[in-house]
C-alpha cells in the first residue's frame, strides 16, 4: 500500500502500557522487544517494569529459563520495582537478586573519584596550598557521606507475591525481606516458612498491611501467634487451610488491632466458641471463615513454643482470655 500507518505515531505509553503490558513480562522479553527498534525502545522504558508478573503456571517452561527472564526484567527497572509476582518457579538466589541494593553506579564512581583525588593531591598542594586542599577534601567527604545514604536506601518494592515457589526456603525469604522495608503486601502461598520466619518477616517489614499465607507446615497456632506478635499494623490477613485454633484467633484479634478483613478459609480447627464469632464480626469489618469440618487440634495450644513466647510477651493486664481453661 506504500502509506505509513498512523499507528506508528501512537504514543509510547499507549503502545507500552495498554498493549505490551497486557502481554506479560515473558512475552515482552522473549518476542515483543525483538520485533523492531522502536518496540525495543518502548520495552526498555523502566516504566514498563514497575509491575512484573512472572507466571509459570500454564506454560510450564523450564524454571531456569524463567529465573533468567525474571532477572532480566528486574535488571531493567533497577531499584524502582513496585510489585512482583513469581508463580511456580523461583529460588533463594532469585529473591536475593530482586532484593539487592541497586546503587552500584555510585559505588563505581567512588574508586574513580578517590583515584583522581589521590593523584591530583600533590599537584594541588603545590598550586593551591593547604587550605584549598582542605576545602576540596571536605567536598569529597560530603560526597562520600551522601553516597553512603543513597546506598542505604534500598528497594521500593511494595508488593511481593510468591505462589508455589517450592525451591524458596524460609531462610532465603527472610534474608531477602530484610532488605525490603517498604513492603506493604505479602502473599506467600504454598511456601515452607515456619513461625520463626514469620516473626522475622514482621520485624523486617514494619509497613506490612496485607498478608496472605498458605504454609506447608502444620504449626498449630504458632503462625497466628507469630503474626499477632510481629505484625501489629496489619489491615488484611488471609490464612488458608491453617491449623489455627480459637486461641490463635484471639491472639490475632489482640495483636492486630487494625484488622479490616480476616479470611480463614478451610481452617478446620477453628471452633469459634462462645462469643468469639460475634467478637470477630464486631471487630473486623470483613470476617470470613468456612465452617469447620472436624473439631480438635492435633497438639494442645500449650505445646507450641511460639505460643509460650507469645504469652510471655503479652502483659497479663492486657489479656482477658484464659488459655489454661481452654486447653483443659
Amino acid at each position: 500500500m506504500g502509506k505509513t500507518p498512523n499507528w506508528l505515531q501512537m504514543p509510547d505509553e499507549i503502545m507500552g502500557g495498554m498493549i505490551f503490558q497486557r502481554l506479560g513480562a515473558v512475552e515482552i522479553l522473549t518476542s515483543v522487544q525483538k520485533v523492531c527498534r522502536n518496540w525495543r525502545r518502548i520495552c526498555k522504558d523502566p516504566a514498563m517494569w514497575k509491575v512484573i508478573d512472572m507466571n509459570n503456571r500454564y506454560k510450564g517452561l523450564n524454571t531456569d529459563v524463567y529465573e533468567k527472564l525474571t532477572k532480566q526484567a528486574v535488571h531493567r527497572i533497577r531499584g524502582e520495582l513496585i510489585e512482583i509476582t513469581l508463580h511456580s518457579f523461583g529460588t533463594d538466589d532469585l529473591l536475593n537478586f530482586i532484593s539487592r541494593w541497586y546503587l552500584c553506579s555510585t559505588f563505581f564512581y567512588l574508586p574513580l573519584f578517590s583515584f583522581i583525588i589521590i593523584h591530583a593531591h600533590r599537584q594541588l598542594c603545590e598550586n593551591l596550598g593547604e587550605i584549598e586542599v582542605y576545602k576540596i577534601l571536605k567536598f569529597v567527604v560530603l560526597f562520600v557521606v551522601l553516597n553512603g545514604n543513597l546506598v542505604r536506601s534500598s528497594s521500593k518494592l511494595k508488593s511481593l507475591c510468591l505462589v508455589k515457589c517450592y525451591s524458596i526456603t524460609g531462610n532465603g525469604l527472610v534474608h531477602a525481606l530484610r532488605r525490603l522495608p517498604c513492603l506493604e503486601t505479602l502473599d506467600l502461598s504454598y511456601i515452607s516458612i515456619d513461625a520463626e520466619n514469620i516473626k522475622v518477616i514482621g520485624q523486617s517489614c514494619p509497613l506490612l498491611k496485607s498478608f496472605k499465607m498458605k504454609t506447608l507446615f502444620m504449626e498449630c497456632d504458632g503462625d497466628a501467634f507469630a503474626i499477632a506478635n510481629s505484625m501489629p499494623a496489619l489491615r488484611h490477613l488471609q490464612l488458608f487451610d491453617s491449623t489455627i485454633t480459637d486461641d490463635g484467633l484471639k491472639a490475632l484479634l489482640h495483636g492486630c488491632p487494625h484488622l479490616e478483613s480476616l479470611d480463614l478459609s478451610d481452617c478446620s480447627y477453628l471452633e469459634l466458641d462462645g462469643d468469639l464469632e460475634k467478637l470477630c464480626r464486631e471487630r473486623i469489618k470483613d470476617f470470613n471463615f468456612t465452617p469447620l469440618s472436624e473439631a480438635g487440634c492435633m497438639c494442645g495450644p500449650g505445646g507450641c513454643t511460639a505460643y509460650q513466647d507469645y504469652k510471655l510477651s503479652v502483659s497479663p493486664s492486657l489479656w482477658d482470655f484464659d488459655y489454661h481453661s481452654l486447653s483443659d
Binding site: N6, W7, M18
Partner: peptide, 8 residues
Amino acid sequence: LELAQAAL
C-alpha cells in the same frame, strides 16, 4: 491499531 490510534 489504526482504530486504537483514531480512538485515542
